[in-house]
Each structure stands twice: as structure tokens, then as C-alpha cells.
Design a binder for these strands. Structure first.
Lengths: 135, 135
DNA sequence: ATAATAATCTATCATTCCGATAGGATAAAT
DNA sequence: ATTTATCCTATCGGAATGATAGATTATTAT
């Protein structure tokens, strides 16, 4: 299941990206329009800023804005920041690899093979998608 | 992330399915071989039995056995029993549909479209896979 | 009959994570 | 100086997860 963090994060990103002039959008505006708890959204936008997707401006007329063209914002990277690993088990994860403690050999693991296939499928979708495709 | 319940369940199912004669396999045997907490595995196998995948036999020589040919056990159904919805958001789920409380319109929701695509991809894989493919 | 085997059932538990909230600090514009 | 809005830290309740314990029932073998 997708976390609300990711869901809200994606909604916020599209909301910001829809603004053609790319003028800063205040958190409150996004929260109201997308029915998101403002405080929760704060922390989400903060991580999106710290990961280099968003810029911010304080004070009146401030808010969050995109640092790149929506076409240049890849969905894989966004998902990894918001949701974490794209793979469903860490032993098949490319960016968050971790060995399973219970599994002695990945090559003979039935779950491994299946989940690798799932990961490849999802990765193909995310890799070929940018923020502009979400409009 | 895949729950351990699902992971263990899949491993147990393949373990049972590998037994050509289809004689009952005791929980303890599976637990030892696959490094799974026996008590936890008990509850998992119980749900797999109650959902019609496994049969059981008590007493000596007892254990769990498959009720169908591994080729006839579809991965979508197994995943739905063990992990729940295949979709990452309930509003795009076929078998566990639920409307999002925050989203006014699914047709204009950016997350909805993306997650539908993901669901379709995963479903295609699971639908075209049976337990026999996990060997 | 008795003992051993193995599933079944119920109940509980610790930990972790998630989503949300609170309150103040900082920075910029008017 | 005041307002606006981000930034930061801390905390919290509730749910879910994974695991454990103990007792019960059914079956087989001796």
C-alpha cells in the first residue's frame, strides 16, 4: 500500500507543477485544495526540498516552487524519496539493497525471482514517466 | 514492502509444492528448512488452508498438502489472500475497492492514473503466473 | 488403552511505523 | 514593526506487524 506521505507528496508536486508561471505556492494553498493536513504536508514538502526537487521562499509571496522542468523530474527518483525502495523486498532492491536474514541463497529463492520481475515491471513504468505525465 | 506473512507464505507454498508425491508436510519441517518462526508459520498456513489452497492432516504422518495442481494455483489469488490488495491505493483496487476520502474525483487524480498503470502491470505478471512458476 | 504426533484455537505481547499535532524559531516582504 | 510563510524539533495515539505461549483436538502407532 502506498503511504499517505507519498500520495500527498505526489499530489502536491502535481499541484505545484500545474502552475505555469512557477510562482511559489504556499503550503496552506496546497493543503486546502488537496484536502491534506497542513502540518503533515509541511514535513513532506520539506523532504522534497531537501532532496532537491523543490525550492522554497519564505515570507509573503513565498512558498514552494519546482527547481526543474516537470519533464525532467523522473518518477523513479520521486518514488524513492517519498516511498523508499521500489522493490517489494530489499534483497531485490537496486538502491536499498539488503540481504535477507532468513534466505540462504537468493538464486534459489522463489520469492526473489517473482519480486524481481515485479520490480522490473514497476521500474519500467516509473523510469519512463516524469512529473509532467501526471497532469 | 512485502509483509513477512506473504514472504513466508510463498516460501511455504513452494516448499510444499516441490514435494512430488504431495504427501503432507509438517509445519516444523517447513519452519526449519526455510528459517521461519514456527508459531508464526502456523497462522499463515491456517489462513492458506481456510482459503482453500491447502489441505491438512493431523497426527503422525500429518501436515499440509496442496489441494490443487501447482499449475492451477494462480499467483493473483495467492497474493490477494496473503498480502491483500494488489493495487497500491484502494481506489484503483479491483477486489478491495474503497473510495479515497480526500480525493473528490478519481478521473482527475494524478495518483490514480499512475497507480492504475502500476496495478495493471503487476496484475499482468501475477495473473500469468502459477505456483509452479516459482520453483 | 496409551503415548506420541501434529494441527487448531485463543490470547497476548513488544515493537515499530504511520499519520497527525503542537509550538516556537527564522526569514522575507510590506 | 507587523504580517506572512517556511523551518525545526518534539511528541503522540493508534494501528499493524511479527512473534510467542499455552491449551485443545484429532490421528496414528505401539
Amino acid at each position: 500500500m502506498l503511504s499517505k506521505k507519498t500520495k500527498y507528496g505526489l499530489k502536491a508536486l502535481t499541484f505545484i507543477a500545474r502552475r505555469i508561471d512557477n510562482k511559489p505556492v504556499p503550503i496552506a494553498t496546497i493543503a486546502k485544495n488537496e484536502n491534506i493536513s497542513q502540518k503533515f504536508l509541511e514535513s513532506i514538502l520539506l523532504t522534497l526540498r531537501k532532496s532537491g526537487f523543490l525550492g522554497s521562499k519564505k515570507g509573503k509571496g513565498g512558498g514552494y516552487y519546482l527547481l526543474k522542468d516537470p519533464k525532467e523530474i523522473n518518477m523513479s527518483s520521486v518514488m524513492r524519496i517519498l516511498e523508499g525502495p521500489i522493490a517489494m523486498v530489499s534483497c531485490v532492491s537496486l538502491n536499498f539493497y539488503e540481504k535477507c536474514d532468513d534466505c540462504p541463497d537468493e538464486n534459489t529463492c522463489s520469492v526473489y525471482k517473482l519480486m524481481k520481475e515485479i520490480r522490473d515491471g514497476n521500474l519500467k513504468i516509473y523510469n519512463n514517466k516524469s512529473l509532467s505525465d501526471l497532469f
